[in-house]
Amino acid sequence: MKSAGSMIPELLDNIRKKPVTRLYPFEKVTVPEGFRGTPQLNSALCLGCQACVRDCTSEAIQILLKKPDPSAPPPAEGAKIPKKFYMVLYLDRCIHCARCAEVCPKDAITMDREFEVANFTRDALRLIQE
């Protein structure tokens, strides 16, 4: 059953091979198409239904009502002002599960492919998306 030296052919095979270690960050690393990066909100589509807030596992999302711009011209008599929402994303809590994108009835949230999102302060990880 025992046979010594069975590693030797494999070792010789590997002598000529290049190291498999990638020189990241000097060499750029690519991620696949479906990679779950940071959630991005398209506020033009957002209804403010809070479905993403309700299902976010780590309570990383806030959807807030945008205050009307005071410099904007007043709307015409009887016309409705469309409500605008923005998202506050706490990236330090986000677990990148993409549940927010899945549950959104208007597909207003999409996941980008960004993965180099680490930062030195927590404040920098509080993203406001309008």
Partner: peptide, 12 residues
């Protein structure tokens, strides 16, 4: 696994 699920560890 990364290709089909979008992540190497927590496939979701």
């Amino acid at each position: 696994l990364e290709e089909i699920s979008g992540n190497r560890v927590n496939y979701a």
